[in-house]
């Protein structure tokens, strides 16, 4: 709705506040799961172990550091625009796949706060908490991104 079109627009997106809320531990703290039967780790978390099918699965918070496995620097103009709401991150974006210390992979995800030309596969990364995009009701949706880990 806006001044020009005061009626409720009937087309609306898929983002839901409750959905983001349900996933908050995974999004905010990188909480996944660990199978107590076979020891397999998973992110995102799951209720049934995908390896041994045990239901004895508990939450496991993963380390906030990892290694860049592969990346792609995308620059506008692309042949399609960014996913709605992500325009705020500008016209250059580093997409990434990250391997955590525990061996679990996370991604697709973003590397930020680093010039693209300095990004190299194999570099150490640290998780940061960032705004992702604004939902239809005005709420911000949060999640993680990654920055170079210069603490080592």
């Amino acid at each position: 709705m806006n001044e020009l079109y005061p009626e409720q627009m009937y087309r609306h997106g898929v983002l839901r506040t409750t959905k983001a809320w349900r996933q908050r531990t995974e999004r905010y703290r990188l909480v996944g799961s660990e199978c107590r039967s076979c020891g397999t780790l998973w992110w995102p978390g799951r209720r049934i172990c995908g390896k041994c099918n045990s239901r004895d699965v508990v939450e496991r918070q993963f380390s906030p550091v990892g290694e860049l496995v592969t990346h792609h620097v995308g620059q506008l103009p692309w042949y399609v625009p960014p996913v709605g709401g992500f325009e705020v991150y500008g016209d250059t974006r580093t997409m990434a796949l990250v391997r955590l210390q525990e061996g679990v992979y996370v991604g697709p995800t973003d590397v930020v706060d680093c010039p693209p030309e300095k990004i190299r596969d194999g570099m150490r990364l640290r998780k940061v908490f960032r705004k992702l995009r604004r939902e239809g009701n005005g709420n911000w949706q949060y999640g993680f991104m990654w920055i170079p880990d210069d603490t080592v």
Binding site: V80, V83, M95, L132
Partner: peptide
Amino acid sequence: VDYDYNFGYDHPTIQAL
């Protein structure tokens, strides 16, 4: 969707990766 689209990734961007 939950962990790609809602993190800003869709077909074209995932294909790029």
